[in-house]
Each structure stands twice: as C-alpha cells, then as structure tokens.
Nucleic acid binder design. Structure first.
Length: 191
DNA sequence: TGCCGGATCCTG
DNA sequence: AGGATCCGGCAA
C-alpha cells in the first residue's frame, strides 16, 4: 500500500524511523524495482540544522525541500553520485529524510548499500527531482506483513562540518541487516 | 567570474 | 589514504 501524503507530513525524525522496513519502488519501463529500506537520516532545515542543504535558505538546488511533503529531493554530489531524499513536514519547513541503504527485494541489479549506489541501481537521477511520491514512477509502500525489527540510531554520516548538529542521533538503521552502508562509530566489525 | 569543497564510492 | 569529477553556493 502506497504511503500517503499524511505519512510524510509529520515530524521528520519520526518519519525517518518509520521508513525503516518500508519498500522503495521505482518503475522503469513498466517494471517494478523494489528495495527494503534499512538506513535513513533526518535533515531538519526548520530548526537550523547546519547539516541540511536548506540551512542557508532556499536555493535552486534545495528548492524542493521548501515545497510540499511527499516529493523527491534528488541532488548530485561529488561529481558522480545522486542521493534520494523524501520531503517531510508541512510545506515551507524545508525538512527531508535521506534514504541511505536498501536491501534488494525485486528486480534489483547491483549494490544498494549507500545513497549513491541505491540511486544507481534504481536509475534515479535529477530528472526525478521534485517527483510526487504519490505518482507512478517513484514511491514508497508499506509491505504486507512488515515485521517489527530492532532499530538503532547514531550520528549522521559525513556531516562533521556541522558542529554540534553533527552529533544529533538522526541516523536510523536496522542493525540486523548486513546492508548498512557504514557501521556505527567505534571499532570496525571483525570477522 | 572564480574557486572551494561536498549528505560518496572505489582502489591501492 | 587518495583520486574521480561536477556543480552549487558564496566571495570578489
């Protein structure tokens, strides 16, 4: 069942946590590519989050964040990767949730553990920036029989420049998944 | 107009 | 540890 506008129009941290276990669906040439979301991060433009693209106000790149909830904010980074966000909260708050990792469920080729990799696997680029997530090309679904799973939180990845905001535990992931782009801070996992 | 660095990923 | 490789955002 497709997630409704009201699902997105809520507190961003809650949305980020609730998105774990949901299915991300990308339709390419009538074929559904589906992945299970296992890692997200909340970005709160509304409260001055220095790590958020919207922190310094509305610019052409992040304009979609200032729009209505339930739309895709896709940006291009490091000259070679795309990242997918979903816009949250009432219009104008400029908040979004970054989708960082999915597990393959249906018709997925290639790696999907990491924001750039999942966009490559799902053929997501800036042509989808601003796309309505209640439309047919890109949307999220609550899978039937979605099971309860352990959730962990920690600091967001790659935002050390954001000072105190970098410490906020706004990264959420399913620790039981082996498809998490980066382990929590601390010692690397040994085998 | 120029330049600096990034919500990343891969290789060595 | 460092390179790839574009472009957004800010300073000048």
């Amino acid at each position: 069942m497709k997630l409704s506008r009201s699902f997105y129009e809520r507190d961003t941290v809650e949305v980020a946590r609730d998105l774990l276990g949901m299915h991300l669906v990308r339709v390419v040439q009538g074929r559904r590519r589906v992945g299970r979301i296992v890692e997200t991060e909340a970005y709160l433009g509304a409260v001055g989050d220095r790590a958020a693209h919207s922190f310094r106000g509305k610019t052409p790149r992040c304009a979609v964040m200032f729009g209505p909830p339930g739309h895709a904010y896709v940006y291009f980074i490091y000259g070679m990767h795309h990242c997918l966000n979903v816009v949250t909260e009432p219009e104008g708050r400029a908040c979004a949730v970054l989708i960082r990792a999915i597990e393959p469920v249906e018709n997925i080729d290639g790696k999907t553990c990491g924001p750039g990799l999942l966009c490559r696997a799902l053929d997501i680029d800036r042509s989808l920036n601003g796309a309505d997530l209640l439309g047919g090309a890109l949307f999220l679904e609550r899978p039937r029989g979605r099971r309860e799973a352990a959730v962990e939180a920690g600091p967001r990845v790659g935002v050390d420049y954001a000072g105190a905001w970098a410490l906020k535990p706004w990264r959420f992931f399913l620790p039981d998944s082996d498809c998490v782009s980066r382990r929590p801070a601390g010692r690397p996992v040994r085998k």
